[in-house]
């Protein structure tokens, strides 16, 4: 029930954003459309999405987006520096990193965050392990690698999803 409510709210909000109007006809049709979409995607919707109903977690999620944007910009400068530098200081390779996250949605978000950040790219996810293509492998130590790539995102995702 809680899951359906989440689904319905999400779809209805999207509908309102799309139509950008609070005319009663539009709201009515929106309710019907959101109900139909809920019914059609009942068992497809990930269970973890319920957690967004909790306002604290929602605030963390909004914070996470800003935080991610900040790191993306930072990493952009880093990659730009590497590309423009005449000596081309890159050492590309694929590293394997283990995450402590349990939730599948959180893992997906983490993988996408890594991909969105320039310089790192998630190639494959197997159970708890990420295979990440990294433009500059600064260290051979797995713990240190985990610290550099994952830890900055992981603590917030844990607060959102776990």
């Amino acid at each position: 029930m809680k899951k359906k409510l989440t689904q319905f709210t999400a779809y209805f909000i999207i509908w309102l954003l799309l139509t950008w109007s609070l005319h009663f006809q539009e709201v009515m049709v929106g309710i019907v459309v959101a109900l139909i979409a809920t019914a059609l995607t009942r068992d497809l919707f990930p269970d973890e999405m319920i957690k967004f109903l909790n306002p604290v977690r929602l605030l963390w999620a909004i914070f996470y987006i800003l935080y991610l944007i900040f790191y993306i910009i930072l990493a952009n400068f880093d990659v730009a520096y590497r590309v423009l530098n005449p000596s081309l200081p890159i050492a590309p390779g694929i590293v394997k990193v283990k995450t402590g996250l349990k939730s599948e949605l959180a893992k997906t978000f983490l993988a996408n965050s890594i991909t969105l950040t320039p310089g790192t790219l998630t190639v494959e996810v197997v159970e708890d392990n990420y295979y990440i293509h990294w433009i500059y492998i600064s260290t051979e130590d797995p713990k240190r690698q985990k610290q550099i790539i994952i830890d900055r995102f992981e603590w917030i995702l844990r607060r959102i999803f776990e």
């Binding site: 999207i14 459309v33 979409a37 999405m49 599948e104 949605l105 893992k107 997906t108 996408n112």
Partner: peptide
Amino acid sequence: MTLIVKMITQVMIGFLLVFGAYIVLY
């Protein structure tokens, strides 16, 4: 496919349906 594709599909499919319905009804 891999976990990432599956999870994103699960999240997105409902929104795709809503967007499709919007395109139709408007």
